[in-house]
Design a protein around this nucleic acid. Structure first.
Lengths: 169, 169
DNA sequence: TATTGTTATACTCTATAACTATA
DNA sequence: TATAGTTATAGAGTATAACAATA
């Protein structure tokens, strides 16, 4: 970036011209929209994430999935409870270790997950409406460079620090 | 975008190739980094926003600023209390209406704001490291189109719904 | 003694609504 | 009666740590 770096540049003009601000706003809004969309199939984002994690390799222990998702086990219990009540996953006893519970997708859970994934792709199409393939990959490339700049691994699972974060403004 | 839209595309591969996911992750992370950075001058993001709003036109009523920032007046009180305790702004009595308090930046507040703005620009340079001017404006242009696609006005102040939002994953 | 999962609890953040003092 | 600001309160969400069963 070549933009001037005067410290006393009018703060009010910074917003529209700032990549950081734009990313913050877009991230907040896309998360919100995505959550609203998944609510259509009665899933919260983290429930969606959990379903995907379980689908990826069924029979994982509850703790293994919790670590994968980087949520504390106490939270994990509540999320699993909810999904089990909805009949989307089920806890089973581990073959040899009776302390651990393995997680499995039910057929209903599998159907809901398929719908949820479909919704997610629909959202992606909405986000990228009017982009041809080269534009979309260019955008992904630029975003990847930004991620590198701030040391974020886009392929990794989110590292939710100690909680909530608001868009800066 | 021209990407195929199969509903049952492997969810695990979606992440890295998805603009929505990338935006969500980047937005979360940039917000976090920005907050950490502003903490350097003992400011939270919304305190920074409040300082900017007051600086933009001093003497506004507390309520006017609250509406501008879209935060409930009860929250506003707490934020103003904090900034006043730090000596960055001060409440004054309105000339003619003794119910309202007008907000003013102190000289200390002005200095801190200048530092905070400088930090924000430094962060922007970090985010856009290695980008030449045309790349940066291309990125801003693409992000602007995404914002249009989802009906987000990047020039407007954030509309924080009923609270926290996590990156979808 | 260590580990899996569970429960209890305490904390932060936010918003709603009651309250006061003015108008 | 309406409005600016304040205070009180209740809810959601989270994490920490005590706990029970098993290894």
């Amino acid at each position: 970036m070549t933009r001037p770096a005067e410290a006393d540049e009018p703060a009010s003009e910074a917003a529209a011209q700032s990549v950081g601000y734009a990313l913050s706003q877009l991230g907040f809004e896309t998360s919100r929209r995505f959550a609203d969309l998944e609510a259509t199939v009665a899933l919260e984002p983290r429930e969606f994430a959990l379903l995907r994690a379980v689908a990826e390799r069924q029979g994982q222990s509850q703790q293994a999935v919790a670590e994968h998702l980087r949520i504390p086990t106490s939270t994990m219990v509540a999320v699993v409870d909810g999904l089990e009540e909805q009949g989307l996953i089920e806890r089973r006893l581990h073959a040899s270790d009776r302390r651990t519970r393995t997680l499995h997708l039910t057929s209903k859970g599998s159907k809901i997950l398929a719908k949820a994934v479909s919704l997610a792709w629909g959202f992606e199409r909405e986000v990228c409406a009017g982009f041809d393939e080269s534009e979309r990959s260019r955008l992904l490339g630029l975003l990847g460079r930004v991620a590198d700049n701030i040391g974020l691994d886009l392929d990794a699972l989110p590292d939710r620090g100690s909680g909530r974060r608001r868009p800066h403004a």
